[in-house]
């Protein structure tokens, strides 16, 4: 399973989402869109919106820190 988190440094929900993944023992790639302009564009492209965090599990984007959606995606 490949998990990516598109985030910004100052965003509390990004922190919460990353902490949650860590607590579940899920390894993820953190992508800070405030320093990576290309990644920022890609995030908008795949999620169809401009808010962080976006958590991508095996190519499927979840917008925001939605615990239940994350659980469902990880369980699948």
């Amino acid at each position: 399973m490949v998990v990516q988190v598109y985030s910004t440094a100052a965003c509390p929900y990004c922190h919460m989402a990353k902490e949650y993944l860590t607590s579940k023992g899920v390894a993820y790639q953190n992508i800070d869109v405030s320093v990576d302009q290309e990644a920022s564009k890609k995030m908008v492209e795949i999620s169809g919106q401009m808010g962080v965090p976006v958590i991508v599990v095996d190519g499927k984007p979840i917008v925001g820190f939605d615990k239940m959606a994350i659980d469902a995606a990880l369980g699948a």
């Binding site: 910004t8 401009m50 917008v63």
Partner: peptide
């Protein structure tokens, strides 16, 4: 909302770079 409208500048600000 989320497509340009945001209520958390601290969070989403960097996405609007440029």
């Amino acid at each position: 909302k989320g497509k340009g409208v945001t209520y958390c500048a601290t969070c989403d600000g960097p996405v609007f770079k440029g």
